[in-house]
Design a protein around this nucleic acid. Structure first.
Length: 418
RNA sequence: ACAUUGGUCAGUGG
């Protein structure tokens, strides 16, 4: 039994790296799952590769067998339920389990899950409930709520919550401040961001690279290029050397502003500054080249990144596909699509929208609809945007009745037209 | 023997 547990653990670790879980699954089926360790390992492993269903089955199975889940089992379950959009279930589980197996971090997972589902109000309800149960919040749980408020654009409330943290003796740390900084910058409120940044050292929190990157993003969004360059200089002076994220923020800003020459120059420059490119920076530049009508250069960049040993990911493929389809290079796009599938990247909802849109814009509405039906058959669940792409192009070629029919189908499936 | 480990920054579609 000990041997099997060790074996399972070893195999589990490789699964987490390679994401290939078939052999592990067979192993789980073959060996008898006899102790709690084996279940804990198996549950954790399956949840790491997004096999929630498997994880839950095992959890139920162990209870049926009369094995009592321990704190670790519960923690793993709560964690993965929250991260896979099943916060409700996580909450139910927490309500059911023994007090001795609960702790603040589990409740924090629930808070985060709710915030990610855009349910900040719910999060606050749980927050109060959790306090009532004897789990006073700490700086982490507060920061989760701060982030939730910021992402829902409730910046004033976030600021007030920061104040509440002081009053309750939960001194905000650099993460709390950064959370708010990001919020201000995304909203374009650079004034507030700057004053918060200046206030930080006075409150015993020196800004770190994330603080500066947040501000950098705000400056790029406002097209304040000179100030952005000044900030880079300031960062170097303060010993916060710009990192790959800093450069990708700048690259993306330049790209979105259509400044592809400057973006290309910065891309070359960053290596000289001791910062190596990565998949993200490559993808940003590639996208920028595509969007500014330089597909040939984009293709060269794609080749270059592969040659330099970087593996294109779904973002890269989607961006490039979009670029190719925009200039009607249908055949090359389909080759790329095949290549990406062969490499193990399954088209996601964005890939599908890119292709639908590409087909429609080249007048191949029928093909688009055919693909759409095929995807639905393969249990892809289209959203309203997928419908919109096709409906719009049906209207464009004067097929109002088909468009209306499709719209009706979407509505019947519970979608709300926008 | 072994397992879980809570918060903040960058990229793709409509």
């Amino acid at each position: 039994e000990k041997m099997y547990t060790t074996l399972l653990s070893r195999l589990g670790k490789t699964v987490k790296i390679t994401k290939v879980f078939k052999p592990f699954e067979e192993m789980v089926d073959k060996v008898g799952m006899t102790n709690i360790f084996m279940y804990n390992i198996a549950i954790a492993t399956f949840s790491k590769v997004n096999q929630m269903k498997k994880a839950r089955e095992l959890f139920d199975e162990m209870i049926e067998k009369g094995l009592k889940p321990d704190a670790i089992t519960y923690r793993t379950m709560v964690h993965t339920l929250c991260n896979s959009g099943h916060v409700e279930d996580a909450y139910k589980l927490l309500e059911k389990m023994d007090i001795c197996n609960q702790d603040l971090s589990m409740w924090s997972h629930v808070l985060k899950g709710l915030c990610q589902a855009n349910k900040v109000n719910e999060a606050f309800k749980i927050f109060n409930l959790m306090i009532g149960k004897g789990y006073p919040p700490d700086v982490v749980s507060y920061s989760i709520l701060l982030d939730g408020l910021c992402k829902s654009r409730y910046l004033e409330q976030a600021f007030m919550l920061l104040d509440e943290m002081y009053r309750r003796g939960c001194t905000p740390d650099v993460v709390s401040y950064n959370t708010l900084l990001v919020g201000y910058c995304k909203m374009g409120d650079l004034k507030q961001a700057r004053s918060l940044l200046e206030a930080m050292p006075l409150r015993g929190c020196d800004p770190d690279i994330i603080s500066y990157n947040a501000l950098l993003r705000g400056l790029c969004k406002a097209w304040e290029w000179d100030k952005a360059w000044d900030l880079l200089e300031l960062m170097r002076q303060k010993g916060c050397k710009p990192n790959a994220v800093s450069y990708s923020i700048l690259l993306n800003g330049l790209g979105k502003a259509g400044k592809h020459l400057e973006a290309s120059r910065l891309f070359k420059q960053m290596t000289g500054e001791g910062c190596n490119p990565n998949v993200v920076t490559y993808t940003i530049l590639l996208d920028c080249l595509c969007k500014t009508g330089h597909v040939e250069e984009a293709r060269e960049l794609f080749k270059q990144m592969v040659k330099e040993g970087f593996t294109p990911d779904l973002f890269t493929y989607n961006a490039f596909l979009h670029g190719l389809l925009k200039v009607q290079k249908m055949e090359e796009a389909m080759n790329l699509l095949n290549e990406m599938v062969k490499k193990g990247y399954n088209p996601d909802s964005i890939t599908i929208k890119v292709i639908l849109d590409g087909l429609c814009k080249t007048g191949k509405v029928n093909e688009a609809y055919g693909l759409f039906e095929k995807m639905v058959e393969q249990k892809y669940v289209p959203d309203m945007h997928d419908y919109t792409i096709i409906i719009q192009s049906l209207l464009a070629i004067g097929k109002q009745d088909s468009a209306l029919w499709l719209l009706d189908t979407a509505v019947q499936k519970g979608w709300k037209p926008d």
